[in-house]
Computed example of a mutant assay.
Amino acid sequence: MMKITDLINWFEIWANPTWQENWDNCGWQIEPGVLDEPARVLICLTPTLAVMQEAILLRDNGIPVNLIFAHHPLIFSPLKSLQTGNPIAEMVRLAYTHKIGVYTAHTNFDQVNDGTADVLAQLLQLKQVTPITPTQDGLGYGRVGYLEPSLTLQELLTQIQTQLSPPDLIFSPTEDLQQPIDKVAVLGGSGASFISAVVKTGAQAYLTSDCKFHQFQEARDRNLILIDAGHYATERPACDRLVQKFRDLGVEWVQLSQKDEDFRLFYGV
C-alpha cells in the first residue's frame, strides 16, 4: 500500500519541482499531516472549491480521499491574509478540517515525457517528437513532430476535435483546408509566447490555447496555422494519463475529478 510520502517522492524524482519557472509554485500547497497515510488521490486540472467538495463527498460515501493532486497551483502569489469567504482560505480550512492535502505539479509536469505536451503529441500520433524549447536531457516545453502519413488541414482539425472534444476550436483563416500538413507542434495550456520558437522548428500548424487576436495575426504573417482548442481541453488529457500512472504504481485509490471546470461557456454550443 503506497503512502502519500512515497508517491510524492516518486513523482518528484520523475518531475522534479526544482525545474519550475521562477514565477511558478509547484509542490505542496497544503499539507495537513497526511504524509504517512495510504494515498487515495483525486486528480484534477485546477484545485477549486468544487473539487474539494467532491473529495469531501467521496469521504462521506466511504472513500477516504486524502490528496488532491492538481496541475494548476492553488497559490500563485504570496498571501497577505486568509479571511472567511476567500476561496483559498476556504480551501485551507476544509483541507485541515477533513485532512485532505493539495499538491501541484505545473511547469515541471509540462516538461517531462507523458506530461501535458507529450500526451497531446501522442494523441495526434506524432512521430520523431522533440521539444519545441528544450530544457534538459531531451525534455522541454511543447513538442513538435511529424504526421505519418500527412493529413490535410481539415483532417487534422477533425482529429483534434475528436481527440480533445473542445467546446470551441479556433484556427487561422486559410484558403485551402485541403493543404497537406506533415509537421505539427503542440503545447498544452497558454502557448502563444512560443510562436517564434515554433516557427523555427518548421512546423506548419501549432496546437495550443489562450491565443489573442493579434497572436493569430502574427502566426498568419509568419506562415504558421495557429489552432486554439482551449486551456482545459489541451491539458485535461495529461491529468487522465496521470491517473493511469498512479494506478500502475499501485496507488490504492485514484480517480480523475468530475468537477474540474473549464471556466468558459460558449453560447449556443
Score class of each variant (00 low, 15 high):
I4L: 13
T5M: 10
N9M: 11
W10R: 07
W14D: 05
A15T: 04
T18F: 06
G27Y: 10
W28G: 11
Q29C: 02
Q29D: 00
E31C: 14
V34R: 01
L35V: 08
E37N: 13
P38T: 12
A39T: 08
L42V: 09
L49E: 14
A50N: 12
A50S: 13
V51A: 08
A55T: 11
L58G: 05
R59D: 10
D60M: 01
N61W: 08
G62R: 01
P64K: 05
P64C: 02
N66Q: 07
N66C: 09
N66E: 10
I68Y: 11
P73I: 06
L74G: 01
I75K: 00
I75G: 08
I75P: 04
P78A: 11
A89W: 07
A89N: 05
E90R: 11
M91T: 04
R93G: 03
L94N: 02
A95R: 09
A95Q: 00
Y96S: 01
T97F: 06
H98Q: 12
H98E: 14
T104P: 09
A105K: 09
H106S: 00
N108C: 12
N108P: 04
F109S: 01
D110K: 10
V112Y: 02
L120K: 02
Q122D: 15
L124F: 06
K127A: 11
Q128P: 00
T130M: 05
P131V: 00
P131H: 01
P131N: 06
G138L: 08
Y146N: 12
L147K: 14
L147Y: 11
S150E: 12
L151R: 13
T152G: 01
Q154N: 15
Q159A: 10
Q161T: 11
T162N: 09
S172C: 04
T174R: 02
E175L: 10
K183P: 04
V184N: 01
V186W: 03
G188C: 03
S190K: 12
G191W: 00
S196T: 13
S196R: 06
A197N: 14
T208Y: 05
C211D: 05
K212I: 04
F213C: 02
H214F: 12
Q215E: 15
F216A: 03
F216V: 03
Q217M: 13
A219Y: 10
R222W: 09
R222D: 05
N223K: 13
L224C: 01
I227V: 14
I227H: 07
H231K: 05
H231N: 07
Y232G: 01
Y232E: 04
T234P: 05
T234S: 15
R236P: 06
D240F: 00
R241I: 09
R241D: 00
R241H: 12
V243R: 07
Q244A: 10
K245M: 15
F246Q: 02
F246C: 14
R247Q: 15
R247W: 00
L249W: 14
V251G: 08
W253F: 15
W253N: 05
Q255G: 01
S257C: 06
Q258R: 13
Q258S: 14
K259S: 15
K259H: 14
D260T: 07
D260M: 00
E261L: 13
F263C: 03
L265Q: 14
F266C: 08
F266D: 00
V269P: 06
V269H: 10
